[in-house]
Write a protein that binds this DNA or RNA. Structure first.
Length: 423
RNA sequence: GGAGAGAUGGCUGAGCUGGUCGAAAGCGCUCGACUCGAAAUCGAGUGUGCGGUGAUGAGCUGCACCGUGGGUUCGAAUCCCACUCUCUCCGCCA
């Protein structure tokens, strides 16, 4: 969330940011409430101050055996009044914090202004989509023909948007996960985390999935836990409510997790294949950084994710999301899009974002530069490194052969033990 | 699942027959003295949040915070209730 004091003293900047995002929200109600809160706070605190001094006086009088009945009666009234005002204040603060939690982050100045993904800015391209001298198949056909992915039985066992992997398909999924984890831990300096796949409401609020996007998540009704939509949630919340030692920054974590998304509002989109599943695997990169270097860290994080595609020799491009396409909590996001022959286009395979202090303020994650200095909010970043299902889809499609088999990318052969996936 | 114990500041740990307790003491940390330097020793300091004032600084000042949320009371770290978590024992299970 944004800083309350910042919103109060810079409503024009906040409104401008909201407008750039295409979020038609006003701030009038918010500012009015904010002022009312301070007014009432001053009043009730004066009463509390009075109660404190008089209560002390009562204590003294009673100790010396004097009568204090008048004061007790008076304070009984005051306490009643305080109670009423506290209740009113609580209601105001609840509404205030709810609206603060529903204001998105302010886009960084370097983010292109735009309304839809059409306005995203292509930053660079890597590799050349190779042509086929035969009709390339979509990955779901390849997977089903080779008997390594089974959507039909998954629909029977669970429902739509689930998959069984089988044999070399299952091994490929596992190989991709291990390859990514090894790369990021050994070459890029990330510490591996294996997180819980269920988190509580506070964690989902800390990273910004709640309160606004509850319908996108799977919730466990009996206990009010949520299936994580990304490892970003447990890993960023790892340090929720903590004050980190400044010397430990920046912290780099990489985590494999399954991810669960309700995909509400995505009916009819990507109904076939691995692109949009209710459950998918992902290797996630998470950073906790000094404010002054967080945008450099974003460049490095994006490069770390790109490295996976380079080693897998899959063509991709990097786009900078425009203000209208930017995620709710993000100040700046690069999407990495991999070439998918069946779509004849680049599809998102990673999203790398700098949230600056937005998540840190929600989750109250701070650091101290020196033992003496005041705590400051860290900057949090994350990015897929990469989405595993989409990577498998890209491998199947880009490495397919005319005879229906699929070559294994060189980087994965040590993990697969075979050079080719055939019948 | 049954029985019991506990949750206090960066840490350890007093307080818990309600009232000078934001909280003893020790450790740690910061600054200073001593030292060529260090250790030891000595001295001083050392929480966070939200308000007011002030320049969105320093300072001064008010309120809140002793797991979380309620309650009793003029007054609660201290009493009562609920919840969460931790530990011990028993049972059960991988």
């Amino acid at each position: 969330m944004l800083d309350l004091k910042f919103v109060r003293s810079n409503p024009d900047k906040v409104l401008e940011a909201l407008q750039k995002r295409g979020a038609a929200v006003g701030l009038d109600r918010f500012l009015e409430l904010e002022e009312k809160r301070r007014r009432e706070l001053v009043e009730v605190e004066q009463l509390k101050s009075k109660r404190n001094t008089v209560s002390e006086e009562i204590g003294r009088l009673k100790k010396s055996g004097q009568d204090a009945e008048n004061l007790v009666l008076e304070m009984r009234q005051v306490s009643q009044q305080i109670k009423e005002m506290d209740e009113e204040l609580k209601a105001i603060e609840e509404e205030l914090s709810f609206s603060l939690l529903t204001i998105p982050n302010i886009p960084d100045e370097s983010v292109p202004v735009g309304t839809t993904e059409e306005d995203n800015l292509e930053i660079r391209k890597w590799g050349e989509p190779k042509g086929f001298n035969f009709d390339p198949q979509a990955h779901w056909d390849i997977g089903e023909n080779l008997g390594i992915i089974d959507f039909e039985r998954a629909a029977k066992v669970t429902g739509a948007r689930f998959a069984f992997y089988r044999g070399l398909g299952a091994r490929l999924e596992r190989a991709v996960i291990n390859f990514m984890l090894d790369l990021h831990t050994r070459e890029h300096g990330y510490t591996e985390i294996f997180p819980p796949f269920l988190v509580n409401r506070d964690s989902m609020t800390g990273t910004g999935q709640l309160p606004k996007f509850e319908e996108d998540a799977f919730r466990i009704e009996s206990i009010d836990y949520f299936l994580i939509p990304t490892a970003e949630v447990p890993v960023t919340n790892l340090y929720r409510g903590e004050i980190l030692d400044g010397e430990k920054l920046p912290i780099y974590h990489v985590a494999y997790s399954a991810c669960f998304r309700a995909e509400a509002g995505a009916h009819g989109r990507d109904t076939r294949g691995l692109i949009r599943q209710h459950q998918f695997n992902k290797v996630e990169l998470v950073k906790f950084a000094y404010p002054e270097t967080s945008f450099d860290e974003l460049e490095k994080l994006t490069a770390n994710a790109e490295k996976v595609l380079q080693l897998l020799e899959l063509p991709y491009r990097v786009v900078c999301l425009c203000t209208g396409d930017l995620g709710f909590s993000s100040a700046k996001t690069y999407d990495i899009e991999v070439w998918l022959p069946s779509y004849g286009m680049y599809r998102e395979i990673s999203s790398c974002s700098n949230f600056v202090d937005y998540q840190a303020r929600r989750a109250n994650i701070r650091f101290r530069r020196d033992p003496k200095s005041k705590p400051e909010f860290v900057h949090t970043l994350n990015g897929s490194g990469l989405a595993v299902g989409r990577t498998v889809a890209a491998i199947l499609e880009n490495y397919q052969q005319e005879d229906g088999t699929v070559l294994v990318p060189k980087a994965l052969r040590p993990y697969m033990g075979v050079e080719k996936i055939g019948k």
